[in-house]
Amino acid sequence: MPITKTKTRARPRKTDPRKPAVWNLRLYVAGQTPKSLRAFANLKALCEERMKGRYRIEVIDLMKNPQLARGDQIVAIPTLVRRIPLPLRTIIGDLSDSVRLLVGLDLRKAD
């Protein structure tokens, strides 16, 4: 029993990020590079699959707004920042590794 209790307790915590009405995701890119386009496509596909209608993707082109790179401590491109729900999560790369992307977004437990 106590084991199942902890499990039931752990579950809502893990499923907690799914609860917010709208996810706020920010994707930092630098121009229309293949990597950036791939990252956006991968992200869009995931969101459509897992949170259709409950997400907002903000694409920030640092070529246009370079000063924004400092705010979120962006070094690598592309970088995805999960702003809502909290806590902030940072994922780098073209998001082609869907398993790690899910882990990064806290949608799946890391093994």
Partner: peptide, 17 residues
Amino acid sequence: TEIEETGEYDLDGLFIR
């Protein structure tokens, strides 16, 4: 610890900064 790598990346962000 906050960072998850999900594929190819570059340092364009640093270059831009």
